[in-house]
Amino acid sequence: MNLFRLAGDMTHLVSVVVLLLKIHTIKSCAGVSLKTQELYALVFAARYLDLFVHFVSLYNTVMKLVFLASSFTIVWYMRRHKIVRRTYDKEHDTFRHHFIVLPCLVLGLLLNEKFTFREVMWAFSIYLEAVAILPQLVLLQRTRNIDNLTAQYVFFLGAYRVLYIFNWIYRYFTEPHFVHWISWIAGIVQTLLYGDFFYYYILSWKNNVKLELPA
């Protein structure tokens, strides 16, 4: 495993920890999109179906379990926890997330590395992950007071995607036959979605002012 990949996984982990910290200690999910969190739970459930069948390494298994457990825990908090769920900004989290699941499934059925159940679900999860951040970005645009933890959560999530691209470039030149068009193209699309956010995040950080996204 190269340094980019490890750094990418770690920023992904940090993003989840930041979000759980906010929800668990402050008991607030203000500014957090439940739609995005539900999509991530679906992404991990579809991709890690083979968790107990296909063993890669202890590291891989532990990380998969962490991402599965954390995504479902966050959804549980936002839907069921009696204090947290009251802080959910339902009125502004209106992205029709169900309508992007079906196209991703169709895309997974059409574009996959092999027409088997696991491969179709894997491709589906890759496509869905690429667009899963959209409801969160829309909600951020509509949020007047974006708190630091929410902004940092999205920043770390975006950083994870950027680092994965560096990881692929590194692997392309160091490993023979390392070509995964599906994850590369979907991954680049996913990273581009963060472009706007990054621009305003860095601007707010440089000028030392609160983050605000123009509508």
């Binding site: 296909h54 092999k114 491969e119 994965y164």
Partner: peptide
Amino acid sequence: KDAFEKKDEL
């Protein structure tokens, strides 16, 4: 090894 066995990323 089939394609799936080669997938080692999260």
